[in-house]
Protein backbone atom coordinates (compact mmCIF):
# COMPACT_ATOMS: atom_id res chain seq x y z
CA UNK A 1 0.00 0.00 0.00
CA UNK A 2 1.26 3.50 -0.75
CA UNK A 3 2.07 5.70 2.25
CA UNK A 4 -1.00 7.49 3.63
CA UNK A 5 -1.62 11.15 2.81
CA UNK A 6 -2.70 11.78 6.38
CA UNK A 7 -1.51 9.87 9.39
CA UNK A 8 -2.93 10.35 12.88
CA UNK A 9 -1.01 8.71 15.70
CA UNK A 10 -2.43 8.36 19.22
CA UNK A 11 -3.98 11.82 19.18
CA UNK A 12 -5.51 13.01 22.45
CA UNK A 13 -7.20 16.23 23.41
CA UNK A 14 -8.31 17.12 26.91
CA UNK A 15 -9.96 20.52 27.23
CA UNK A 16 -9.31 22.86 30.16
CA UNK A 17 -12.58 21.73 31.73
CA UNK A 18 -11.15 18.19 31.96
CA UNK A 19 -13.37 16.90 29.13
CA UNK A 20 -11.50 14.32 27.09
CA UNK A 21 -12.64 14.93 23.52
CA UNK A 22 -10.08 12.69 21.82
CA UNK A 23 -8.82 9.55 23.46
CA UNK A 24 -5.87 8.17 21.53
CA UNK A 25 -7.14 8.37 17.95
CA UNK A 26 -4.96 6.60 15.38
CA UNK A 27 -5.98 6.63 11.75
CA UNK A 28 -4.35 6.50 8.32
CA UNK A 29 -6.09 8.12 5.39
CA UNK A 30 -5.24 7.02 1.88
CA UNK A 31 -4.48 9.39 -0.93
CA UNK A 32 -7.57 10.09 -3.01
CA UNK A 33 -10.16 8.35 -0.87
CA UNK A 34 -13.39 9.66 0.66
CA UNK A 35 -13.61 8.84 4.33
CA UNK A 36 -16.82 9.49 6.24
CA UNK A 37 -16.56 9.94 9.98
CA UNK A 38 -19.77 9.06 11.72
CA UNK A 39 -20.59 9.70 15.31
CA UNK A 40 -23.22 11.14 17.61
CA UNK A 41 -23.05 14.72 18.88
CA UNK A 42 -20.02 15.28 21.08
CA UNK A 43 -18.27 12.18 19.75
CA UNK A 44 -15.13 14.18 18.89
CA UNK A 45 -15.56 14.57 15.13
CA UNK A 46 -15.12 18.34 15.01
CA UNK A 47 -12.34 18.27 17.63
CA UNK A 48 -10.46 15.74 15.52
CA UNK A 49 -10.70 17.92 12.41
CA UNK A 50 -9.91 21.11 14.33
CA UNK A 51 -6.83 19.52 15.89
CA UNK A 52 -5.49 18.39 12.52
CA UNK A 53 -6.10 21.83 11.01
CA UNK A 54 -4.44 23.80 13.83
CA UNK A 55 -7.53 25.36 15.42
CA UNK A 56 -7.33 23.21 18.55
CA UNK A 57 -4.03 22.37 20.22
CA UNK A 58 -3.51 18.63 20.75
CA UNK A 59 -2.71 17.38 24.25
CA UNK A 60 -0.54 14.57 22.89
CA UNK A 61 -0.03 12.53 19.77
CA UNK A 62 1.10 13.38 16.29
CA UNK A 63 -0.44 14.13 12.91
CA UNK A 64 1.42 14.21 9.60
CA UNK A 65 0.15 15.36 6.22
CA UNK A 66 2.20 13.94 3.33
CA UNK A 67 4.98 13.44 5.88
CA UNK A 68 4.82 16.98 7.32
CA UNK A 69 4.19 17.21 11.07
CA UNK A 70 1.20 19.50 11.71
CA UNK A 71 2.92 21.12 14.71
CA UNK A 72 6.64 21.23 13.90
CA UNK A 73 6.26 21.72 10.15
CA UNK A 74 2.84 23.36 10.28
CA UNK A 75 3.26 25.62 7.28
CA UNK A 76 4.04 22.79 4.86
CA UNK A 77 1.29 20.63 6.38
CA UNK A 78 -1.40 23.33 6.33
CA UNK A 79 -0.69 24.29 2.71
CA UNK A 80 -2.00 20.85 1.78
CA UNK A 81 -5.21 21.12 3.80
CA UNK A 82 -8.52 22.80 3.06
CA UNK A 83 -11.19 23.11 5.72
CA UNK A 84 -14.92 23.65 5.33
CA UNK A 85 -16.25 24.33 8.83
CA UNK A 86 -19.59 23.20 10.16
CA UNK A 87 -20.86 26.69 10.92
CA UNK A 88 -21.25 29.16 8.08
CA UNK A 89 -18.60 31.78 8.89
CA UNK A 90 -18.09 34.40 6.20
CA UNK A 91 -17.44 38.14 5.98
CA UNK A 92 -20.99 39.34 5.20
CA UNK A 93 -20.06 42.54 3.37
CA UNK A 94 -17.41 41.09 1.07
CA UNK A 95 -17.91 40.05 -2.52
CA UNK A 96 -17.78 36.31 -3.17
CA UNK A 97 -14.71 36.58 -5.40
CA UNK A 98 -12.83 38.83 -2.96
CA UNK A 99 -13.26 36.46 -0.07
CA UNK A 100 -12.14 33.49 -2.20
CA UNK A 101 -9.09 35.41 -3.47
CA UNK A 102 -8.26 36.34 0.12
CA UNK A 103 -8.23 32.67 1.15
CA UNK A 104 -5.85 31.79 -1.68
CA UNK A 105 -3.46 34.57 -0.67
CA UNK A 106 -3.68 33.68 3.01
CA UNK A 107 -2.52 30.18 2.16
CA UNK A 108 0.50 31.60 0.37
CA UNK A 109 -0.54 31.07 -3.24
CA UNK A 110 -0.07 33.83 -5.83
CA UNK A 111 -3.17 35.30 -7.40
CA UNK A 112 -4.60 33.12 -10.17
CA UNK A 113 -7.85 34.44 -11.57
CA UNK A 114 -8.23 31.56 -14.04
CA UNK A 115 -8.10 29.02 -11.23
CA UNK A 116 -10.56 30.97 -9.06
CA UNK A 117 -12.91 31.17 -12.04
CA UNK A 118 -12.65 27.40 -12.51
CA UNK A 119 -13.59 26.73 -8.88
CA UNK A 120 -16.45 29.23 -8.89
CA UNK A 121 -17.83 27.74 -12.09
CA UNK A 122 -17.50 24.21 -10.71
CA UNK A 123 -19.51 25.26 -7.66
CA UNK A 124 -22.08 27.22 -9.72
CA UNK A 125 -20.96 30.46 -8.07
CA UNK A 126 -19.51 32.26 -11.07
CA UNK A 127 -22.69 34.24 -11.73
CA UNK A 128 -22.67 35.32 -8.09
CA UNK A 129 -19.00 36.31 -7.99
CA UNK A 130 -19.73 40.02 -7.49
CA UNK A 131 -22.60 39.48 -5.05
CA UNK A 132 -22.07 40.34 -1.39
CA UNK A 133 -21.93 37.25 0.79
CA UNK A 134 -24.88 38.38 2.91
CA UNK A 135 -27.12 38.40 -0.20
CA UNK A 136 -26.62 34.67 -0.77
CA UNK A 137 -28.83 31.80 0.33
CA UNK A 138 -27.62 29.33 2.96
CA UNK A 139 -26.74 26.74 0.33
CA UNK A 140 -24.78 29.27 -1.71
CA UNK A 141 -22.89 30.37 1.40
CA UNK A 142 -21.87 26.79 2.02
CA UNK A 143 -20.57 26.63 -1.53
CA UNK A 144 -18.55 29.79 -0.90
CA UNK A 145 -16.98 28.06 2.11
CA UNK A 146 -16.04 25.15 -0.14
CA UNK A 147 -14.65 27.53 -2.77
CA UNK A 148 -12.52 29.22 -0.09
CA UNK A 149 -11.24 25.86 1.14
CA UNK A 150 -10.34 24.80 -2.43
CA UNK A 151 -8.83 28.14 -3.46
CA UNK A 152 -5.28 27.13 -2.56
CA UNK A 153 -5.47 23.75 -4.32
CA UNK A 154 -5.34 21.50 -1.24
CA UNK A 155 -4.68 17.76 -1.49
CA UNK A 156 -6.81 17.00 1.56
CA UNK A 157 -10.22 18.53 2.14
CA UNK A 158 -12.11 18.39 5.42
CA UNK A 159 -15.85 18.82 5.21
CA UNK A 160 -17.35 19.16 8.66
CA UNK A 161 -21.02 18.21 8.29
CA UNK A 162 -21.32 19.74 4.81
CA UNK A 163 -24.98 18.90 4.45
CA UNK A 164 -26.21 19.69 7.97
CA UNK A 165 -29.43 21.63 7.69
CA UNK A 166 -29.59 21.71 3.89
CA UNK A 167 -32.48 20.39 1.86
CA UNK A 168 -32.42 17.07 0.03
CA UNK A 169 -31.83 18.57 -3.40
CA UNK A 170 -28.87 20.61 -2.22
CA UNK A 171 -27.50 17.59 -0.41
CA UNK A 172 -27.43 15.65 -3.65
CA UNK A 173 -25.79 18.64 -5.35
CA UNK A 174 -23.15 18.61 -2.65
CA UNK A 175 -22.53 14.90 -3.19
CA UNK A 176 -21.93 15.61 -6.86
CA UNK A 177 -19.40 18.28 -5.92
CA UNK A 178 -17.63 15.76 -3.66
CA UNK A 179 -17.58 13.16 -6.44
CA UNK A 180 -16.09 15.73 -8.81
CA UNK A 181 -13.40 16.62 -6.26
CA UNK A 182 -12.56 12.97 -5.80
CA UNK A 183 -12.21 12.65 -9.56
CA UNK A 184 -9.77 15.59 -9.41
CA UNK A 185 -7.67 13.60 -6.94
CA UNK A 186 -8.58 15.41 -3.72
CA UNK A 187 -8.67 13.29 -0.58
CA UNK A 188 -11.85 14.03 1.36
CA UNK A 189 -12.66 13.50 4.99
CA UNK A 190 -16.21 14.36 5.87
CA UNK A 191 -18.15 14.15 9.07
CA UNK A 192 -21.83 13.57 8.95
CA UNK A 193 -24.89 12.64 10.91
CA UNK A 194 -26.54 11.30 7.80
CA UNK A 195 -25.63 7.69 7.37
CA UNK A 196 -27.24 7.70 3.98
CA UNK A 197 -24.57 10.21 3.00
CA UNK A 198 -21.69 8.02 4.12
CA UNK A 199 -23.25 5.05 2.42
CA UNK A 200 -23.73 6.96 -0.83
CA UNK A 201 -20.36 8.62 -1.28
CA UNK A 202 -17.70 7.29 1.10
CA UNK A 203 -15.06 4.71 0.21
CA UNK A 204 -14.50 4.00 3.88
CA UNK A 205 -16.49 4.66 6.99
CA UNK A 206 -15.07 5.43 10.42
CA UNK A 207 -17.26 5.36 13.49
CA UNK A 208 -16.17 7.60 16.35
CA UNK A 209 -17.72 7.80 19.79
CA UNK A 210 -16.43 9.32 23.03
CA UNK A 211 -13.18 10.34 21.33
CA UNK A 212 -12.32 6.84 20.13
CA UNK A 213 -12.47 5.27 16.70
CA UNK A 214 -14.72 2.24 17.15
CA UNK A 215 -14.42 0.98 13.64
CA UNK A 216 -12.94 1.84 10.29
CA UNK A 217 -13.83 -0.20 7.26
CA UNK A 218 -14.58 -0.11 3.55
CA UNK A 219 -18.17 0.99 3.16
CA UNK A 220 -19.14 -1.93 0.95
CA UNK A 221 -17.33 -4.49 3.11
CA UNK A 222 -19.01 -3.08 6.20
CA UNK A 223 -22.38 -3.28 4.57
CA UNK A 224 -21.69 -6.85 3.56
CA UNK A 225 -20.21 -7.89 6.85
CA UNK A 226 -22.78 -6.34 9.06
CA UNK A 227 -25.64 -5.96 6.69
CA UNK A 228 -28.52 -8.27 7.32
CA UNK A 229 -31.40 -8.53 4.96
CA UNK A 230 -35.04 -8.75 5.75
CA UNK A 231 -37.69 -10.46 3.68
CA UNK A 232 -41.19 -9.15 4.20
CA UNK A 233 -43.84 -11.59 3.13
CA UNK A 234 -47.36 -10.25 2.76
CA UNK A 235 -50.12 -12.80 3.42
CA UNK A 236 -53.46 -12.95 1.68
CA UNK A 237 -55.15 -13.61 5.03
CA UNK A 238 -53.98 -12.53 8.47
CA UNK A 239 -52.80 -15.08 11.02
CA UNK A 240 -52.94 -14.73 14.80
CA UNK A 241 -49.64 -16.52 15.41
CA UNK A 242 -46.75 -18.13 13.56
CA UNK A 243 -47.59 -21.81 12.93
CA UNK A 244 -45.49 -24.23 15.00
CA UNK A 245 -43.83 -25.80 11.92
CA UNK A 246 -42.24 -22.41 11.14
CA UNK A 247 -40.92 -21.77 14.66
CA UNK A 248 -37.30 -22.49 13.67
CA UNK A 249 -37.13 -19.46 11.31
CA UNK A 250 -37.37 -16.74 14.00
CA UNK A 251 -40.26 -15.08 12.16
CA UNK A 252 -41.89 -11.87 13.31
CA UNK A 253 -45.52 -10.96 12.70
CA UNK A 254 -46.38 -7.41 11.65
CA UNK A 255 -49.32 -5.40 10.33
CA UNK A 256 -51.90 -7.24 12.42
CA UNK A 257 -50.75 -10.64 11.24
CA UNK A 258 -50.84 -9.72 7.54
CA UNK A 259 -47.05 -9.67 7.23
CA UNK A 260 -44.33 -12.13 8.18
CA UNK A 261 -40.79 -10.79 8.49
CA UNK A 262 -37.81 -13.10 8.04
CA UNK A 263 -34.28 -11.86 8.82
CA UNK A 264 -31.37 -13.59 7.14
CA UNK A 265 -27.71 -13.12 6.40
CA UNK A 266 -27.15 -12.40 2.75
CA UNK A 267 -23.57 -13.69 2.90
CA UNK A 268 -24.64 -17.04 4.36
CA UNK A 269 -24.28 -20.10 2.16
CA UNK A 270 -27.92 -20.98 2.64
CA UNK A 271 -30.32 -18.13 3.21
CA UNK A 272 -33.20 -20.52 3.87
CA UNK A 273 -35.59 -18.53 1.70
CA UNK A 274 -36.62 -21.35 -0.57
CA UNK A 275 -37.25 -23.75 2.31
CA UNK A 276 -39.21 -21.11 4.22
CA UNK A 277 -41.49 -20.41 1.28
CA UNK A 278 -42.08 -24.16 0.78
CA UNK A 279 -42.80 -24.65 4.49
CA UNK A 280 -45.19 -21.70 4.43
CA UNK A 281 -47.07 -23.24 1.54
CA UNK A 282 -47.24 -26.53 3.46
CA UNK A 283 -48.59 -24.62 6.48
CA UNK A 284 -51.32 -23.23 4.24
CA UNK A 285 -50.11 -19.66 4.38
CA UNK A 286 -50.74 -17.92 1.04
CA UNK A 287 -48.28 -15.27 -0.08
CA UNK A 288 -49.52 -12.16 -1.91
CA UNK A 289 -46.26 -10.20 -2.11
CA UNK A 290 -42.60 -10.43 -1.17
CA UNK A 291 -40.12 -7.60 -0.57
CA UNK A 292 -36.51 -7.68 0.61
CA UNK A 293 -34.49 -4.83 2.14
CA UNK A 294 -30.96 -4.45 3.40
CA UNK A 295 -30.41 -2.98 6.88
CA UNK A 296 -28.97 0.49 6.51
CA UNK A 297 -25.69 1.82 7.81
CA UNK A 298 -27.81 3.68 10.33
CA UNK A 299 -28.91 0.46 11.97
CA UNK A 300 -25.33 -0.82 11.96
CA UNK A 301 -24.15 2.44 13.47
CA UNK A 302 -26.82 2.55 16.16
CA UNK A 303 -25.91 -1.03 17.03
CA UNK A 304 -22.20 -0.19 17.34
CA UNK A 305 -22.72 2.87 19.51
CA UNK A 306 -25.15 0.98 21.75
CA UNK A 307 -22.62 -1.85 22.05
CA UNK A 308 -19.96 0.68 23.04
CA UNK A 309 -22.24 2.21 25.67
CA UNK A 310 -23.07 -1.28 26.97
CA UNK A 311 -19.39 -2.14 27.40
CA UNK A 312 -18.77 1.06 29.30
CA UNK A 313 -21.46 0.21 31.81
CA UNK A 314 -20.18 -1.54 34.98
Amino acid sequence: MTSPILSIDRLTKTYGSGFKALNGVSLDIRDGEILALLGPNGAGKTTLISTICGIVQPTSGRVTVAGHDTVRDYKAARRLIGLVPQEIALEPFEKVITTVRFSRGLFGKPRDDAFIEKILRQLSLWDKRDARVRELSGGMKRRVLIAKALSHEPRVLFLDEPTAGVDVELRRDMWQVVEQLKADGVTIILTTHYLEEAEAIADRVGVINKGEILLIEETQALMKRMGQKEMRIELTEPVSEVPGVLSGYGLRLEAGGCRVVYTYDRQAERTGIGRLLRDMQDADLHVSDVETRQSSLEEIFVGLVAEDAGEARP
Binding site: C53, K75, A76, R78, L83, P85, P92, S103, L106
Partner: peptide, 18 residues
Protein backbone atom coordinates in the same frame (compact mmCIF):
# COMPACT_ATOMS: atom_id res chain seq x y z
CA UNK B 1 -12.14 41.04 16.79
CA UNK B 2 -14.53 40.90 13.83
CA UNK B 3 -13.22 37.52 12.51
CA UNK B 4 -13.52 36.21 16.06
CA UNK B 5 -17.07 37.52 16.32
CA UNK B 6 -18.31 36.14 12.98
CA UNK B 7 -16.26 32.95 13.19
CA UNK B 8 -13.93 33.47 10.22
CA UNK B 9 -10.97 33.27 12.63
CA UNK B 10 -10.90 29.54 11.82
CA UNK B 11 -9.31 30.41 8.52
CA UNK B 12 -6.51 32.45 10.08
CA UNK B 13 -5.77 29.74 12.63
CA UNK B 14 -5.65 27.00 10.01
CA UNK B 15 -3.57 29.03 7.53
CA UNK B 16 0.12 28.39 6.93
CA UNK B 17 0.95 31.77 8.47
CA UNK B 18 2.99 32.51 11.60
Amino acid sequence: YFPKFIGTIYELLSAPAS
